[in-house]
Amino acid sequence: MDKKKIVAIMPIKLKNERLPGKNTKMLGDKPLIQYELDNLLATGMLDSINVYCSNEEVCQYLPQGVNFVKRSETLDLPTSNFSQIFEAFSKEVDADIYVYAHATAPFITKETMVECMNAVLSGKYDSAFCASKIQDYLWQDGEPLNFDATNVPRSQDLKPIYRETSGVYVYTKEVFEKYHRRIGKNPYIKEVSFKEAVDINNPEDFDLAIAMLPVEL
């Protein structure tokens, strides 16, 4: 069987609205952007790891072995979405399988990344993503969403609902070509811990991440 080409993309903006400069902000002893890049490198499974950014200043933060791919400044607009960013990137860097990584998820482990990539490589799944399991009493529009309010079950007996976390998305080239999205029709859902699910978007998230860093003795 031919070896599949696996390529990682990490889209980066250096100017952020909710937490200015978050991607290059120091988290412990290294910038936020380096956490997930280091773990992608550690998997040893990727043909290339690419930071997709309009500003070459990001290069000073990239570990050895990570490529800089310049993108149009139009993709930095607040209205830019995944489809626009990935479509532009995929025209420049071809692959059989893509790993879409977010710098804002510093605690996603190498093991989780490997598990997601292997799930798609196996051919049993067309995509993989990370998620937090929610098993609680949920309401929507004033009505119970996942339980009978007249016969309330134990919380552990509720049917789990999964919430996407940023982490990593792994998907075949065909998934995007066919559905124009990063999750296909037969995804592998990787349940992650509370720590792995941390996604940094605002100052409070950053404070949480600092509190979760290993304590040096």
Rank of each mutant, 00 (worst) to 15 (best):
E111K: 12
T150N: 13
N146L: 08
C130P: 01
A131P: 09
K110V: 12
L145K: 11
L121E: 14
E115F: 00
N146M: 05
V114P: 00
N118H: 14
V152S: 01
A128V: 08
A119W: 01
N151A: 14
N118K: 15
P144E: 10
W139R: 06
A119H: 02
W139V: 13
S127P: 02
N146V: 04
L121G: 02
A131C: 13
F147T: 04
S122H: 09
C116D: 15
Q135C: 13
V114H: 00
L138V: 08
S132G: 09
L138R: 06
I134D: 12
N146P: 09
Q135I: 11
D148K: 07
F129K: 04
A149N: 06
A119Y: 02
N118F: 01
D148W: 06
G123H: 06
E115P: 00
G142W: 08
G142C: 08
W139L: 07
F129S: 06
C116F: 04
Q140V: 08
K124H: 13
C116H: 03
G123W: 03
D148C: 07
N146K: 08
W139G: 09
S132F: 05
D126S: 07
K133V: 15
L145N: 10
Q140S: 14
G142A: 05
E115R: 13
K133Y: 05
V114Y: 00
N151M: 04
Y125V: 10
Q140L: 10
L121F: 09
A149K: 09
L121Y: 06
E143K: 15
E115C: 04
L138W: 03
E143T: 06
L145D: 10
N146C: 10
A119R: 01
V114S: 02
S122N: 11
E115A: 15
I134G: 03
P144A: 08
N118D: 15
G123M: 06
Y137G: 14
L138K: 05
K124F: 05
N151E: 08
S127F: 01
N146D: 10
T112D: 09
I134A: 13
L138M: 15
M117T: 11
N151S: 11
K124N: 14
W139P: 01
A131K: 11
M113N: 06
L145Q: 11
K133A: 14
Y137N: 11
C130W: 00
C116N: 14
Q135G: 10
V152A: 02
Y125W: 13
F129L: 15
G142Q: 07
S132E: 14
K124W: 01
D136Q: 13
A149W: 03
G123N: 09
C116M: 15
Y137R: 10
G123D: 07
K110P: 05
W139I: 12
P144C: 09
E143V: 11
L121D: 03
A119V: 08
A119E: 02
C116I: 06
Y125Q: 02
D148H: 06
V120P: 00
F147W: 06
G142T: 11
D141W: 07
A149H: 09
D148G: 05
D141L: 08
D148P: 04
K124L: 10
D136V: 06
C130I: 03
M113T: 13
V114D: 00
P144L: 10
F147G: 03
C130V: 04
E111F: 11
V120R: 00
V120E: 00
D148L: 03
A131G: 14
E143R: 13
G142K: 04
E115L: 02
L145H: 09
C130A: 15
F129C: 14
E143Q: 14
V152H: 00
A119S: 15
